[in-house]
């Protein structure tokens, strides 16, 4: 029926030669053709044996194991989790300061967030790695290099986490505070028994996202400079690549990052879907 009318209209109005449905079909066919042409062209002009030798060299990959797991992966996980735990609590404190009635607290929190969110993470790491040991020469960071790394990653992630917590706290209905206060709870008591637990539940998906970002940011701590035992995934793969002149260890390191981040990404999607269901 529709086709008939369109055809009839096409006959009476010569400029509209194709129906929208046909135009869409042709447009899609062109897009697919261009995409296929690009893939074929790349496949033809690329030097596959060279690629395989440089990036997917099984002999080189085998050499990376087991140390890339025992040192690289282990350190990446330790650095990220310790930085995340520190960033979690620091971020919560900064968020509460950001929402405080006390002006100096609000100001400090705002400056903190703007500075650490605005600076590239690598700059913070370099300042902590080189500046702090000079500034506090008589003191030693405990558990180095883990202490410095946890502090560096914690300081950076706290700025992002603070904004996430603030959004969560503000998403808890005001009536919850009023109910808690009307039962005789102080402002602080109401915050910690009623508001914050509900706020954290609300922001669990973005909190998990922050963890994924931190796994990737942890690759930047190499600028602090460690010995071999302190290498995380990226630095481990990179140094092995430099030594052997083959990029396969970097690909291995990259795949191991994906082994950490892809399941977490899946978890975020599950949690978001669950929250969406919960709200309906």
């Amino acid at each position: 029926m529709t086709t008939d009318t369109t055809v009839a209209e096409a006959g009476s109005a010569p400029r509209a030669r194709l129906s929208p449905r046909k135009r869409k079909k042709i447009s899609l066919a062109i897009q697919y053709a261009v995409f296929a042409a690009v893939v074929v062209m790349l496949a033809v002009i690329a030097d596959w044996p060279a690629i395989q030798h440089a990036f997917f060299n099984l002999d080189e990959a085998r050499k990376a194991f087991p140390d890339i797991l025992a040192v690289g992966l282990k350190n990446t996980i330790i650095y990220t989790l310790s930085g995340y735990v520190l960033g979690f609590f620091l971020g919560l404190i900064v968020a509460l300061m950001r929402l405080s009635d006390v002006l100096p607290y609000r100001a400090i929190a705002l400056v903190y967030i703007e500075v650490f969110r605005g600076l590239p993470a690598i700059v913070v790491f370099m300042i902590l790695g080189f500046g702090v040991p000079i500034a506090f020469q008589d003191y030693e960071m405990p558990y180095d290099p883990y202490g410095t790394v946890a502090l560096a990653l914690g300081l950076v992630s706290a700025a992002y986490l603070a904004e996430t917590f603030r959004a969560g706290i503000q998403a808890v209905p005001k009536g919850q505070t009023e109910a808690a206060r009307s039962l005789g709870m102080s402002q602080g008591r109401a915050m910690f028994t009623v508001i914050v637990p509900q706020a954290i539940r609300i922001v669990i998906p973005p909190l998990t996202n922050e963890l994924i970002l931190l796994f990737k940011d942890s690759s930047l701590v190499f600028v602090i400079g460690f010995t071999l035992s302190g290498y995380e995934l990226f630095k481990f793969g990179e140094s092995l690549s430099t030594r052997t002149g083959n990029s396969t260890p970097l690909i291995v390191a990259g795949l191991l990052y994906l082994c950490l981040t892809v399941p977490l990404g899946y978890l975020v999607r599950r949690l978001e879907a669950k929250q969406k269901r919960g709200r309906v």
Binding site: P173, G175, Q176, E178, A179, R181, S182, L183, M185
Partner: peptide, 18 residues
């Protein structure tokens, strides 16, 4: 906080802790 303990309040929107 001490004074409010003598007053119970019931809200239109219940405001139970979810």
């Amino acid at each position: 906080d001490a004074a409010r303990r003598k007053l119970g309040m019931v809200f239109q929107q219940f405001n139970l802790f979810g």
